[in-house]
């Protein structure tokens, strides 16, 4: 049974005054599932992700969590890991202290939290840089540290807001593989917001398209690939699935023009 939580969004709406940022989004995510949300800028992808993470209050509708056994679940401080595009590391803290921060906020004893942070950094192949400051890291390394921080509490839901958006192609591919294996290993439910269709297809079990601006969520497209590695990226299935998602997106662009 996966550790990840199931998520049910029903008619979720977010408004800022008169501006509608998210319109009647309904989505069911299974425990342990990896789902990506793609769509135009301003469609409400990030707003939906933040609403799931509890960073945005819903104007109407609901978002509920449940365990793999179906029991309702109210997420605690450890249950949600959030990885942002810019990494968002505290510039005055070392890499190790940054990764240990979520555990520190929870009051975990110093030795225990530093051991956990070290182990997570080792897992991310970042063992040698724990004493460095964020400014001394490359973009890819910062993202690894941000991922390590998001995963250090062993979250049941991992939210990823365009985490690879500002990275070069080589680093991006390496980190995509890394992310996939980490998510599979942890059994967490993962939601990825991205502009990159290929990234969404190769990583996800399903891809959801937010159509229009503000977007309306289309039924998610199931993804089935022979493999999730470089070979998978070269497969016919990958190309056709990318085309299907692209078609959905183009539809969304036509409808928004």
């Amino acid at each position: 049974m996966p550790r990840g939580l199931g998520i049910r969004a029903k008619n979720a709406c977010v408004c800022f005054g008169d501006v509608v940022a998210l319109r009647h989004a309904s989505l069911t995510i299974l425990p342990g599932e990896f789902i990506s949300i793609v769509g135009d800028s301003g469609g409400g992808k990030t707003t939906l992700l933040r609403a799931i993470g509890g960073l945005r209050a819903l104007s109407s509708g609901s978002i509920e969590f449940h365990s793999a056994s179906g029991a309702n679940w109210i997420p605690g401080p450890r249950d949600i890991g959030f990885c942002f595009q810019e990494g968002r590391l505290l510039p005055w803290r070392s890499v190790l202290a940054n990764v240990a921060l979520p555990l520190e906020l929870e009051g975990v004893a110093s030795g225990e939290r530093l051991d956990a942070a070290r182990a997570m950094l080792e897992r991310m192949r970042m063992g040698g840089v724990e004493r460095r400051m964020p400014s001394q890291l490359s973009g890819g390394m910062r993202m690894r540290v941000a991922m390590a921080r998001a995963l250090v509490t062993r979250p049941r839901v991992l939210l990823l807001d365009e985490p690879f958006g500002s990275l070069d192609e080589v680093t991006r591919l390496a980190l995509e593989d890394e992310l996939l294996s980490l998510v599979r290993e942890s059994g967490a439910t993962a939601i990825l917001v991205t502009h990159a269709i290929g990234e969404a297809v190769v990583l996800s079990d399903r891809v959801a398209v937010l159509r229009g601006r503000p977007g309306s969520l289309q039924p998610a497209i199931p993804i089935s690939l022979p493999s999730r590695d470089d070979e998978g990226r070269l497969s016919v299935e990958f190309a056709s699935l990318c085309a299907i998602v692209q078609h959905e997106l183009r539809g969304s662009q036509e409808s928004s023009v």
Binding site: G54, L55, F82, F84, E86, R88, L90, L105
Partner: peptide
């Protein structure tokens, strides 16, 4: 930085 505030909000600080 509001972005850093969100990190703290996620972990219920």
């Amino acid at each position: 930085d509001p972005g850093l505030r969100e990190i703290f909000a996620i972990h219920h600080a």
